[in-house]
């Protein structure tokens, strides 16, 4: 077991090193133009310089702010909507047509209205992220609620849990947590993708997405690549953190259950 893990780590390292070596070779010997393809060492150097110049932290903070506004709103609105749709059949029939029409509209198509409604503010960026994140949360919450085994509801009723409010709180919600958590994870991925676009239209002077566009205008493609990689790595870290947390706390009971 321990050895297998060690070997897996070796493969991961080998994969990354091979990729970097090929990248470096192609950039230096084949392309030979850092504007078209900056090499790995160029990017590393630029990253160290950017660390020194100091906007990196401000960019990260600003992006997290936009992300938090979007995801926060999506949870606040998505979970109750999903619960209503999953628990009350009439609410589903009432809300579903609207949701199904709005859902296919790409979140980025909302940018003009985001600006008209909220101006060039952080909230405006948060709104676009919200649009991207809210639907996976609604749909997964709804799916979780409509798939609750009937036996749990009946067992609850027999034990005196008979009001809708109590059934939702004590039976349906905990039973749906795995679905809701999966929806949240998908929403985080979509939100992270919307972040770049939402920041590109210039709501603030900072932000990871904003800086990509900014350095593009300055023709500093090496810095563009640095910020792209940061987006990838931070996105990965957020997802890993979330998975770690979920496994440890929320879903302890799910171990060994077949789903």
């Amino acid at each position: 077991m321990h050895d297998k893990r060690k070997i897996n780590w070796l493969y991961t390292a080998a994969s990354l090193i091979t990729c970097i070596l090929i990248w470096q070779a192609v950039a230096v010997y084949i392309v030979g133009n850092p504007f078209i393809l900056p090499s790995f060492t160029d990017v590393l150097l630029a990253f160290i310089l950017l660390l020194g110049s100091g906007t990196l932290i401000s960019d990260l903070t600003m992006s997290f702010l936009h992300f938090a506004i979007g995801i926060g709103l999506a949870l606040l609105i998505g979970i109750p909507t999903g619960i209503l749709m999953g628990w009350f059949e009439k609410m589903f029939t009432f809300l579903n047509p609207v949701i199904e029409i709005i859902r296919p509209i790409p979140p980025l198509a909302w940018i003009p209205f985001a600006i008209v409604w909220f101006g060039l503010t952080n909230f405006s960026a948060g709104f676009v992220i919200f649009i991207g994140a809210v639907f996976p949360i609604i749909i997964n919450t709804y799916t979780g609620f409509s798939n609750i085994p009937k036996i749990f509801v009946e067992a609850g009723q027999m034990l005196g849990c008979t009001k809708n409010r109590d059934l939702i709180r004590f039976i349906a919600f905990p039973a749906a947590v795995p679905h809701i958590a999966a929806g949240f994870r998908i929403a985080c991925g979509v939100a992270w993708m919307c972040l770049v676009a939402a920041e590109m239209f210039g709501v603030s002077a900072y932000g990871l997405g904003h800086k990509i566009w900014w350095y593009y205008h300055l023709h500093q493609m090496t810095n563009v690549l640095v910020y792209m990689l940061i987006l990838g790595i931070v996105g990965l870290a957020v997802d890993a953190l979330f998975r770690f947390y979920i496994r440890r706390s929320l879903l302890r009971w799910q171990t060994g259950e077949v789903h």
Partner: peptide
């Protein structure tokens, strides 16, 4: 007329809440 705590029930299938100890 409706389910309630006066009557207890043990179901055939496993009905324990898996999220509670």
């Amino acid at each position: 007329t409706k389910p309630g705590p006066r009557v207890g029930m043990v179901f055939q299938e496993y009905s324990l809440f898996p999220w509670r100890n």
